[in-house]
Design a protein around this nucleic acid. Structure first.
Length: 493
RNA sequence: GGCCCCUUCGCCAAGUGGUAAGGCCGCGGAUUGCAAAUCCGCUAUCCCCGGUUCGAAUCCGGGAGGGGCCUCCA
């Protein structure tokens, strides 16, 4: 299977090839930890976590790094505002970030390097850049000299000459060119600082990503990701300083995810329109958010809205109902169906039904292999659902007529579904609020009682009473489902 | 002013040269005592105008509308 990747560097889809056979180095820019994460911060991690799952499924060994920038002007300002230290603030916000990722089933990140843990690497890289003539010290600061880098601007099509015309660049007479950017910033009193050959100070914004990615993934690695808003200046500068330093290709593919929007505008801390993840998760389950992030192509912007989340929840509910059905048929929870995250070709001599299932799996994988088109892949997920439900209906698996052979086949198909949902990182474990059944014994008992009373009423054709029970339960947001041999119930419409 | 990107059914969203996946909503049918759930069926020629081609939502040119970046930002 040939994977295609769109790279910002070439602005086209390319055949995916790794530097080392079977191994993938992946670096994604994480947050500056000065404010709790908002929904936009989850986009990259969820997308790239899914990409890693997919690549692992195809037997690649993926090393996935997401940095934490824990020293920066904004941290200094915010910590003063909160009357705390930079360290305390950074730790608190990092904990929030990590816990959100965990809830969203972002489990594939191998390293979360902190900028402050790599000061040594940063200093030696700056030193190297100065020695090679790409950087210069100036009054306690160190700047990267864009005029020394022939292909500066290649990622975003920026002409360094024109940067001067921008006039939005900070005026600073310590710089030689308007486009020069700080590798090291001299510290003012009271600011976090580390000793350096140029005096006490702290790293500039971009250098930590270069230093940490090189340390953890090598001078050349395969994929570099981040939000579209990081293309310039962050990634441009990161690329420039890295390749100037090593003389090698820094990252082969640059992938930029679309930005989360609220009310037609980009969601960002500076716009002040951000939806804080922990707030959102008070009203919606994490899986709904993960589903939202995967429902469109990663390069498109995603419109955030409450209605959309509610709509997607309805979509997910049909999966949860199906899982309930699986349990009734197979006596086994979908969540306990175990299958390795590994591609295995379809066995020979399968039934027509399993043929359909494998065809759907192929469609899913083809969509995903084409620039990680999760939206297209999700389309086939729904076709899985319909195909499986149809089979269960036709083979009458929930009645005495359902034969064991058909049930076995059904379970095989469910296993294939499980296989691909693992790639998506969906339906990994039951969602707390998704359970169609209550989770306490008293409730179960009372419901059993009401259902039995209603069953008696139905048997004696006392439909007004039967309907009254159902109607009153509906008013309590409980829905009854009469199935061939029993009546089930769930909370919700 | 410069650099990118987007515009597909009421809403969301795949499709990047061969005659429009999927989801939500809606409608009809099967099933049901009636519902619910499930299944089956129905609902678009792709912002506009030119061009290339046997053939374009898909390529090229122009126009309209929207978004991102050029300052911190996932």
């Amino acid at each position: 299977m040939q994977i295609k990747v769109y790279s910002t560097l070439t602005r086209q889809k390319e055949d995916f090839q790794t530097f080392q056979p079977g191994k993938v180095g992946m670096y994604v820019c994480g947050p500056t930890v000065y404010k709790p994460s908002h929904v936009g911060h989850m986009v990259g991690p969820v997308i790239f976590d899914t990409i890693k799952r997919f690549l692992s499924y195809l037997d690649y060994q993926v090393n996935f790094v997401v940095n934490i920038t824990d020293v920066d002007d904004k941290l200094i300002v915010e910590s003063k505002k909160q009357n705390t230290t930079v360290t305390e603030l950074a730790e608190r916000v990092t904990a929030d970030y990590l816990s959100n990722l965990k809830k969203l089933q972002v489990t594939g990140i191998d390293h979360f390097p902190r900028a402050t843990h790599y000061i040594g690497e940063i200093l030696s890289m700056i030193n190297g850049l100065i020695e090679k003539g790409f950087a210069y010290a100036s009054n306690g600061d160190v700047y990267f000299d864009v005029s020394k880098d022939d292909d500066y601007g290649k990622l975003c099509n920026r002409d360094p000459e024109q940067l001067e015309a921008g006039a939005r660049i900070e005026v600073n007479d310590r710089k030689r060119n308007a486009g020069d950017f700080a590798l090291w910033k001299g510290a003012k009193p009271g600011e976090p600082m580390w000793d350096s050959p140029w005096g006490p100070g702290r790293p500039g914004w971009h250098i930590e990503c270069s230093a940490m990615s090189m340390k953890l993934l090598g001078e050349s690695f395969d994929m570099h990701g981040g939000g579209l808003d990081l293309q310039f200046p962050h990634h441009e500068n990161e690329l420039a300083q890295s390749e100037s330093y090593s003389g090698k290709t820094f990252a082969r593919y640059w992938l930029h995810n679309g930005l989360m929007k609220t009310g037609d505008k980009k969601m960002s801390k500076s716009e002040g329109n951000e939806i804080v993840v922990t707030e959102l998760l008070k009203k919606h389950q994490p899986e709904t958010l993960r589903y939202l992030l995967l429902s469109s192509h990663y390069r498109s912007p995603i419109e955030y809205s409450e209605d959309r989340l509610l709509e997607l929840r309805r979509t997910l509910d049909s999966f949860y109902r199906f899982f309930d059905r699986v349990k009734r048929i197979c006596g086994k929870s979908f969540y306990d169906v175990s299958t390795p995250l590994k591609f295995v070709p379809a066995p020979k001599g399968h039934s027509a039904f399993m043929g359909e299932i494998y065809k759907l799996r192929d469609a899913f994988l083809d969509a995903f292999a084409d620039d990680f088109n999760s939206g297209g892949a999700l389309g086939t997920l729904h076709e899985f659902l319909t195909t499986l439900n149809r089979f269960a209906d036709q083979a009458k698996l929930e009645t005495a007529e359902g034969n064991p052979g058909a049930k076995g086949e059904f379970l095989s198909a469910v296993t294939v579904l499980r296989e691909i949902t693992q790639i998506l990182g969906l339906f990994i474990e039951p969602q707390e609020s998704a359970g169609p059944q209550g989770n306490n014994q008293l409730m179960d008992g009372v419901m059993r009682l009401l259902i039995d009373i209603r069953a008696d009423a139905r048997k004696s054709k006392n439909f007004p009473l039967a309907d009254l029970v159902r109607k009153r339960l509906a008013e309590l947001n409980i829905t009854l489902e009469d199935r061939p041999d029993e009546t089930g119930w769930r909370v919700g419409p």
